[in-house]
Design a protein around this nucleic acid. Structure first.
Lengths: 236, 236
DNA sequence: TTGTCGCGTTGATCTAGATCAATGTGAATG
DNA sequence: CATTCACATTGATCTAGATCAACGCGACAA
């Protein structure tokens, strides 16, 4: 199962971009490309940390659950994102594909060693981890202190930042359209709400003409300023 | 203002432990020891990231706030912990001393450069950041999905892990005592609850003889198993 | 065309936790 | 030892969001 970093679609965005051609060949030998079907798990909460990976294609959710099934999504991963827990022996959360996906997998021990031998790669990894930490801390403010309307508005804005479809957005205007890569239950699990509350908030925003919903997966932001106001103070 | 890493009380626990004597002398030149009074801020949310530091003594809270004053504590820092945002130009949160404290401060640009030249140091920093990320993600599950009794129980257990006073804990038994480094409002800001709810949950636990409260700051865990049960399922 | 299956929405009610309002309590001060 | 001030507790309500329960609706199969 030979794959080729040279041709990798994420080679310029993933942490591998820290490597020169020789090093790419070396890391190439440690990796294998794996396809994962939507709904399939790549890593399970509580398992030993045996693999790490780069997301090449698709999308993943990172979740943690309580004994009775309550679930919280604690992260989302897109192409070029890094998955797994290097330099640690336990995975503290489950990683599941949201769509049919491809990842570039390494054994954790191989990867750890390779990283220690390549400081530039380790630096990239550190930078990513720091960015992720900032993002996660922002979610803590949301989960701990924001109201339902504030949560939904913040969520839509963050999604539009990450997913804004260039072909549909009007440059200089506030019109933006994007497709959520998941259904209402997952949105609820990201926001720490129930599916019903998410649904009600969405229809409320639609009624107020802040957003339009061509269908359940697609969102069009009609009034980004308003959405920002709601996200930061809930002044509906 | 000469300080001396050789004599530093946290030199074996802080990231500096990655350095050999020569390197310690070098980093010594970049640092200065600063005292901070309880309640004083070291870093402000939104400010440019100009400094980073190691906590030498005391305790800090890391907070993020909404326009109307709602506040969420998104981290706690103790001696040997690292503070600030290296390799980034903006602080996303405020760092405030909870008690009179001492930190070992570096200019961020000096620190960034020094780290890049010392991969072992960068590795230590990465490890700390990964551990912190795991911890923060655990809080997300708590903030998004746990009930008030579950939150308070988890909090007390986490605190006993971090602060258990060896001189008061009975080896092999479940009796543990520790002093919270902050008041009820701060506990509420950690748990995403109100001060009243925290208070009610604490007295409930006291009534059920799961904990004892010698005074407002001190907690004694009488039945750790029970506390674990409550933390994971709220089966009160 | 008629199920039916998986979602999402909508409505009616319930409740955990917030809010509002006193009432302790203990350490510091004159 | 009274006074005050900053917290913490306790009690009485209120409400945002959960829960319970239909209902809608498009996709897909028979």
């Amino acid at each position: 199962m030979m794959n080729n970093c040279e041709q990798c679609v994420v080679k310029n965005k993933a942490i591998c971009s820290a490597l020169d051609p020789d090093e790419l060949i070396a890391i190439n030998r440690l990796s294998r490309k794996v396809s994962i079907k939507a709904g399939q798990a790549l890593i399970w909460e509580g398992d030993d940390s045996l693999i790490v990976a780069n997301v090449v294609e698709g999308a993943f959710k990172l979740t943690s659950s309580l004994a009775d099934g309550r679930e919280q999504i604690i992260g989302l991963l897109y192409p070029s994102d890094f998955v797994g827990r290097p330099f640690g022996d336990r995975n503290e959360y489950t990683v599941t594909a949201l769509a049919d996906s491809k990842v570039c997998v390494f054994s954790r021990s191989d990867f750890d060693q390779f990283v220690r031998e390549h400081p530039d790669l380790e630096h990239k990894l550190l930078q990513r981890t720091l960015v992720e930490l900032d993002r996660v801390r922002r979610s803590m403010l949301m989960l701990g202190r924001k109201t339902a309307p504030e949560r939904v508005a913040s969520f839509l804005l963050e999604m539009s930042d990450r997913l804004a479809d260039a072909s549909c957005s009007v440059v200089g205007g506030s019109l933006q359209q994007f497709a959520l890569p998941f259904g209402r239950q997952q949105v609820a699990d990201i926001l720490g709400l129930t599916i019903e509350t998410v649904s009600r908030q969405m229809t409320q925003l639609k009624k107020n003409e802040v957003i339009a919903l061509p269908d359940h997966r697609n969102v069009q932001i009609l009034d980004a300023n308003r959405l920002h106001d709601i996200a930061d103070a809930g002044s509906s």
